[in-house]
Design a protein around this nucleic acid. Structure first.
Lengths: 267, 267
DNA sequence: TCCAAATCGAACAGATTTGTGCGATAATGT
DNA sequence: ACATTATCGCACAAATCTGTTCGATTTGGA
């Protein structure tokens, strides 16, 4: 049997069962465990599966860290500062949209704790944001969730989401972004998510992008907004001066949030 | 069994029950308590659960709410048995809808752990169900979430939900119910939820109601289904004989699930 | 408050898995 | 036909995982 055939079978079994054991594969495929091990190593290099002790698991069965509780605690100070600036742009009674991602989630947290949120209506495609509002049921905040299929990052996207969004109108949309490309605009790694973000911008009078300075140094696949389509960009003051200057030229308004003390956590 | 699979099951059970004990997991999974302890420690490091004396509790926002965890704790044995019967009615490749409530959630839990769930598509208006599928994304299961506004019970309802649902078609819909009124049918306390349940039934070839025997003794406001509109009712065998007889006359099919031993947890 | 039972964590031992080196075999190119 | 390369299987040492024992700690009730 050709090795690629064998590897195909391994992946296929993995898809069906979620996990495979080297000893079992060795018996089923009639080759030695060493061969299976080498196959798995190769497949893991290609990112088709994840090696674990005793076999392999599909990358999706792998339990990763929860997206919204502990992730990116590093930059939590930055996100907090950015969120607080964003909260100032909301007025009681507004109808706003909130996109996916951790930055938007932190914004939602701060917004709900503030006074600005009284009487507002929130449209969101972020499950965590929706749950957040629901959990803090004290406020007179209405939440509308776009439907759609769920992405890894717990956002709802796809034609259903886009269609629901298109049937509504909001004052302001708050979006996070995966990366910022200085000449081009704002990008997401998932094109469906990008499409949904665009749909939200289409129904909003005002678009506000929330993004910390680290996003300037990364890049992604799908552009969802050019600079001229965005009304306000809120980031933190750690962004390098060169990028600040270039961005300020491109965008209508650039707000720099000032994070509190680095807070070297000690005893 | 591969350790990541085991950890997966732990998280899975945790989501269903809200809390798990080490002794119980040790028996259920057939490994020593020390192994479970090590798994839990690892999962706690990832932030997927919180360690407590004797076991672990969920940190997830969706289950830290007393509403969901306490309720699903109560009659967990009944719901498990009912869920297992319901899982048998699903075939790989099916397109099914799952409604809100804890019973439907437990069903989703069992379904995803079973083989039947391979290749299925799930339409749901339950945020917890959506998150569950997303979190356990081990199988090739697609989830479509109806949009809408969120109710106290974390279900999505309202015109948006109904409209999205109306644009789709499913083989089978699985619904919980708040109460069963023997001459009339199945009721929910919230009329919006009732409307959404009706919308789901409208697009389904087959309607299946999941409900434990306690629901016969309560009553609610809004009727969402008459007996003749329902194809199958699954309940547990603790329902009193009189109600069984009367219900059997009214419904096309009545399945009685037999809960396992009360399982007074001891050695 | 005190005590008994349960739970926890650390350390050790046994079992399983893994990586590397080496030789054998099969496939490929000249 | 010959040489070259790639693939496979085996053996042994290192690493990892798991179970058990045992004292320390926590829990819950008298």
């Amino acid at each position: 049997m050709i090795s690629s055939q064998r590897q195909h079978l391994i992946v296929s079994r993995l898809r069906a069962r979620g996990a495979v054991r080297i000893t079992a594969l060795s018996k089923e495929l009639g080759v030695s465990a060493m061969t299976i091990r080498r196959d798995i190593a190769e497949l893991a290099d290609k990112g088709l599966l994840k090696r674990v002790h005793g076999g392999a698991v599909s990358t999706s069965t792998l339990l990763s860290e929860p997206l919204f509780s502990v992730k990116s605690q590093m930059d939590i100070g930055l996100k907090d500062a950015i969120a607080q600036e964003a909260v100032k742009l909301v007025s009681p009674g507004d109808v706003i949209a909130i996109g996916g991602g951790t930055t938007a989630y932190v914004f939602a947290q701060h917004l709900l704790e503030s006074q600005q949120s009284s009487g507002i209506t929130i449209l969101t495609n972020s499950i965590p944001v929706a749950e957040l509002v629901q959990a803090l049921e004290s406020k007179d905040v209405e939440v509308i969730v776009t439907g759609g299929v769920i992405t890894r990052s717990n956002s709802l996207v796809g034609p259903i989401a886009d269609k629901v969004i298109a049937s509504l109108r909001v004052n302001t949309v708050f979006l996070g972004t995966h990366s910022v490309s200085v000449p081009r605009g704002f990008l997401m790694p998932n094109s469906l998510e990008a499409a949904t973000d665009m749909a939200m911008m289409d129904i909003a009078d005002r678009t506000i992008i929330l993004t910390d300075h680290t996003k300037w140094s990364s890049t992604s696949l799908s552009l969802f907004a050019k600079f001229e389509q965005v009304d306000t960009v809120i980031t933190d003051d750690e962004l390098d001066p060169d990028s600040i200057m270039k961005t300020r030229d491109l965008v209508k308004e650039l707000i720099l949030a000032h994070p509190a003390e680095p807070e070297k956590l000690e005893a």
